[in-house]
C-alpha cells in the first residue's frame, strides 16, 4: 500500500498558489467490506473544472458520491480517509450532512427534475428544503439561478408549467439551476451529458466554462474528449487487479492528455483500452 502511494504521481494544486476547494486524502470507499475505490489523494482547485475519467468500474462515480456523503444512504457503505471542504472534514462533527449538501451540490446522469413541481418550484426546491419561505427571496433566487443555468430566457414566461414539459437538455439545465440556487461552493456532476444529444451536451459544456467563475466543478465523465475540452485538472482512475478502482494519476488536464507520467494513462487517453 505505501509503495503504491510513493509511486503515485499526484500534484497538489495548492503548490501553484491556487485556492483549494476540496482535499481528498487517501480516500477509499467500500461496500460490505469490498473496496470499490481507494488511494484517492488530490486537491480540487477552486473555480476550476476537475474531471474524473477512467473506464467503467474504475470507481469514479463512487468517489464522486463520497464528496457529498450520498453513500450515507447505502447500508454497508464505508468511506475512509479524509475529505476536507475548505479545510473542514466533511465526515467530522463540524459539518452536518445537510449543510454539507447545500455547500456541495450535485447534478445527476439522468435529468431528474421533480415531476410534480413546476419549473419555478424545482428551481427553488433546495431553498424550500432549507426553510426559506419569503416570496421575494425565492423569486430572486429562481431568476438568478435560471439565468446562471442559461435557461431563464426560454422559461421566463412559463415558470409555472410542469418541469416534465421541458426537453432533456433544458431539464438538465433546470437541475443545474436547482443546485445553483443554494449558492454551493462545489458542484458535483455525474456524467451530466450522457443522456443528452450532442447539441444539448455542447450547451451544458459551454455553461460549465462560465459557471466555474462562481462555483468549483467536479465532473465525472466517460467521454475523454469532453474531459479534455472542459476540464482544467484531471484525475485518471483505473480498476486494479482486485477489481477495486484506484487513482492512477492526477494532474492538469493538459499534462494528463499530452505528457502523462504513467504509461496506463497514456494508453487510456490514446484509446488503447477502455
Amino acid at each position: 500500500m505505501t509503495d503504491d502511494l510513493t509511486t503515485k504521481t499526484t500534484t497538489t494544486a495548492s503548490s501553484s498558489g491556487v485556492k483549494v476547494a476540496m482535499q481528498l486524502k487517501d480516500v477509499a470507499v467500500s461496500f460490505n467490506g469490498r473496496t470499490a475505490v481507494r488511494d484517492a489523494t488530490f486537491d480540487v482547485a477552486a473555480n476550476r473544472v476537475t474531471s474524473m475519467i477512467g473506464p467503467s468500474g474504475s470507481g469514479k462515480t463512487t468517489l464522486l458520491r463520497a464528496l457529498n456523503r450520498l453513500h450515507d444512504l447505502t447500508p454497508g457503505a464505508k468511506v475512509t480517509g479524509k475529505i476536507l471542504l475548505e479545510g473542514v472534514d466533511i465526515y467530522g462533527p463540524d459539518l452536518t450532512v445537510t449543510e454539507l449538501r447545500t455547500r456541495v451540490g450535485m447534478v445527476f446522469q439522468r435529468p431528474n427534475p421533480f415531476p410534480t413541481m413546476s419549473i419555478y418550484e424545482n428551481a427553488v426546491s433546495g431553498l424550500r428544503f432549507n426553510g426559506i419561505k419569503k416570496k421575494s427571496l425565492l423569486d430572486e433566487a429562481a431568476e438568478e439561478s435560471l439565468r446562471a443555468a442559461a435557461l431563464w430566457e426560454s422559461v421566463e414566461n412559463r415558470l409555472n408549467v410542469a418541469a416534465s414539459n421541458l426537453s432533456g437538455g433544458e431539464q438538465q439545465r433546470l437541475c443545474i439551476a436547482r443546485a445553483l440556487a443554494l449558492k454551493p461552493e462545489v458542484l458535483l456532476m455525474d456524467e451530466p451529458t450522457s443522456a443528452l444529444d450532442p447539441i444539448a451536451t455542447l450547451r451544458i459544456e459551454e455553461l460549465m466554462s462560465t459557471l466555474k467563475q462562481q462555483v468549483t466543478i467536479i465532473i465525472v465523465t466517460h467521454n475523454m474528449q469532453q474531459a479534455s475540452r472542459i476540464s482544467d485538472d484531471c484525475a485518471f482512475l483505473l480498476m486494479g487487479e482486485d477489481r477495486a478502482g484506484e487513482l492512477i494519476e492526477f494532474n492538469t488536464t493538459e499534462k494528463i492528455f499530452n505528457s502523462p507520467i504513467d504509461s496506463r494513462t497514456l494508453d487510456y487517453t490514446l484509446g488503447r483500452f477502455g
Binding site: L70, L73, M106, F108, S125, G126, R178, A179, L182
Partner: peptide, 8 residues
C-alpha cells in the same frame, strides 16, 4: 438522491 443533495 436529488432531494438529499439539496440538503433535504
Amino acid at each position: 438522491e436529488a432531494s438529499l443533495s439539496l440538503g433535504a
